[in-house]
């Protein structure tokens, strides 16, 4: 299956490990990500004002690219665009929804974007990789596990943008199960963090790091209290805030024991034994190798 793939800016640099592990995992499951030609940054946060249409330009251009891919035969009648970054997912999907509800807005935007050869016809659907994985047979997932870690205690962390607002979320915003079901199928030990949908502070990291440190401390501690050894997430900003800011947490709380925060696809690539070059652990601030390799020895 070939599917248009929207990377988003962070996945090309700071979250390269998210991209390479995801592409490898997808490939091992028979899904080929075809990077959207000339994709542009989505804007990272959805436009929330009724009147600033200019912020919808970026998402809509990407939708037009997907339509062009179909027209050029790069993909075959595949109008879903798969995203990995939870922020991109949210921003793109919110814009798509807005355009579906407001034809007049779309007309205005199409008019200003006259250099585009095609107007956006609203046939693109924004999906997240987790939704693709959800539709893959559990046995197929299980068959791919070459490096089982049944004792590894994994706590999923959703953050905000995969789930809220309700109308664009991939699951129930109060009680999501999509990552839990995936982890269960991956035969690891699931640990529930009561704060798994609590905001990490997001872009406030640019204006006030202390906010992130205090929110992160609560989120990480709740996961650890529940017994988690690793946290998995799908958002490069959550990952950064929860992983990198542990440096600041340790400075404030000397007894704090660091915990690795991975992209869920990094864990999958490891479980599937897809090769070290697909894990990208060197980009994780808190090194996950220790806990994963220890487990490997135990399970062998």
């Amino acid at each position: 299956m070939k599917i248009p793939y929207y990377p988003g800016c962070t996945l090309k640099t700071k979250a390269k490990n998210f991209e390479i592990s995801s592409i490898a995992v997808a490939k091992s499951l028979g899904v080929e990500f075809v990077e959207i030609p000339r994709w542009n940054c989505c804007g990272a946060v959805p436009s929330l004002s009724s009147d600033d249409l200019i912020r919808h330009f970026a998402p809509i251009r990407n939708f037009i690219r997907v339509e062009e891919m179909n027209k050029a035969g790069i993909v075959d009648n595949e109008y879903r665009m798969v995203t990995l970054c939870a922020m991109c997912y949210n921003t793109l999907k919110m814009s798509n929804l807005r355009m579906r509800r407001n034809k007049e807005d779309l007309d205005k935007i199409n008019d200003v974007m006259y250099l585009e050869t095609e107007h956006y016809k609203q046939d693109v659907e924004v999906v997240h990789f987790l939704e693709i994985l959800k539709n893959i047979d559990a046995n197929k997932l299980k068959k791919n596990i070459k490096n089982p870690l049944p004792d590894l205690k994994v706590s999923p962390y959703y953050g905000c943008t995969l789930l809220r607002p309700k109308e664009i979320g991939i699951d129930d915003p109060e009680d999501p199960k999509i990552m839990e079901n995936l982890l269960t199928n991956l035969s690891v030990t699931l640990v529930n963090n009561p704060l798994k949908t609590r905001c990490c502070g997001s872009y406030q990291v640019v204006s006030d790091k202390d906010i992130i440190t205090s929110l992160g401390y609560d989120i990480l501690n709740n996961a650890k209290r529940a017994g988690a050894e690793v946290i998995v997430t799908s958002c490069p900003l959550c990952q950064f805030n929860l992983d990198r800011r542990q440096k600041d947490i340790i400075e404030l709380h000397h007894d704090f024991e660091p915990i690795p925060v991975l992209y869920f696809t990094q864990l999958m690539a490891f479980l599937f034994d897809l090769g070290e070059e697909t894990y990208g652990f060197e980009q994780n601030y808190i090194d996950p190798k220790k806990v994963l390799n220890r487990k490997e020895l135990v399970s062998n």
Binding site: N40, C41, G43, I54, R55, F57, A58, R61, V112, M113, L115
Partner: peptide, 10 residues
């Protein structure tokens, strides 16, 4: 990084 993809520049 403030680019809005409006394409006015092009």
């Amino acid at each position: 990084f403030k680019c809005l993809s409006c394409n006015t520049c092009t």
